[in-house]
Nucleic acid binder design. Sequence first.
RNA 1: CGGAGUGUAGCGCAGCUGGUAGCGCGCUUCGUUUGGGACGAAGAGGUCCCCGGUCCGAAUCCGGGCACUCCGACCA
Length: 410
Amino acid sequence: MRQTDLFPKKTLREAPKDAETVNHQLLVRAGYVRQLMAGVYTYLPLGLKVLNKISQIVREEMDELGGKEVLMPLMHPALNWKQTGGWDHIDVLFKVKSRTKKDYALAQSHEEVVTPLAKEFIHSYKDLPLSIYHIQWKFRDELRSKSGILRGREFLMKDLYSWHINQKDFDEFYGKAKLSYLKIFKRLGLTAKVTEASGGGFSEKISYEFEVLTDAGEANILFCDNCDFCVNTDDIDKYKAGDMCPRCKKDNLKPAKASEVGNVFDLGEKYTRAFNFIITNDKGAQVYPIMGCYGIGISRTMGVIVEKFHDGRGIIWPKSVAPFDVHLLELPGAKNAESVYKNLKKLGIDVLWDDRDLSAGEKFADSDLIGIPVRLVVSAKTGDEIEWKERDSQKSENLSFNEAIKKLQK
RNA sequence: CGGAGUGUAGCGCAGCUGGUAGCGCGCUUCGUUUGGGACGAAGAGGUCCCCGGUCCGAAUCCGGGCACUCCGACCA
């Protein structure tokens, strides 16, 4: 699209002083988000594009896993939350009262909605296994939200839920879900560590968190460089830094700060019991299905990516989640800007064309700030050629249009 | 919720021993520029977070709120 059609058209040279973390500063300056209040953000067109790109990658992998996509409500009747005890025990649950004095909860998670939903359709072991997911906002009444979009009171999350006839079938799916998660984070350009953690209020069993190393994160982990062992020390305190890795016994555990971008829980029969969700097994007996839940923080992941990939000039998006494939800068004297733009579009390349009447310096600065992976410059200097430069590289080269296309399609 | 800090133009800030507000960037107009956030000239833009008090007079002093940021607690 033309940058003169982008909202907003301009970036900020300085970040608002309340923005202290890198993701907050860069996302606001470059025009991806605006803060409405502590922990609550508006996603502007660029930010929404990134959110949608991340969502789409997650969606593809969830579909691959066999998940059925739905969209569940944000506002829930209090009854569902009273049925599981969450109404009284979950401190972060936002509660609202209608003018007729009825109680409602804002979606803090969706077990209370999805379990009765699944119960309506699953009556026999023949209906299992089943997994349902959606990508939807969550509300949590945190005492203190912080760190830009890393910890909001309102945030976008993918949550998948699965039901199984027995523990063996669950365990099999659980393993596949973990692999799917690793694939997702890899596609997003991140390295996530599968981390042992407590089940929280969900479960007595151990759960697994997917942690990305970053000082902006809140989790304290210990990990092994030799194998993939990793543990959340906020939850589990039987290890300490320097201990020999309990898995490979070849290296010492190292401490690090990390951000939890995903998690998977074995919920057992907790929710199926709470909703009296009983089915018939192959012996004709009445049993509770085994349930699991699997979350990925979409908006938090966007923040983590910015924390991991930036430099002094701005964001450096991985190709898979960048708001555009190419940033075409038109400098004074360029004759081929419009034809390059149109031809790129014709080939299905998503290009942001900086057609604004600004100095070269401002365009370069904005381009670095916004962080699109490939920058193409056309100017009086380049003539019929195009200057190619990648955001994460210092080098640039002049190419013909066809050479540039070839390079893009790689 | 405990501790610390900050609220003045769109953004960043100065003014705070009381006398009705200023700087940089941005914005508008004109001109000159044009490969790393250009230059000159002329302009526009303000409930000084809110409420109350003291005073002839409050951005400034006093009291009470609210909001945001950071540390902590919390984050089924």
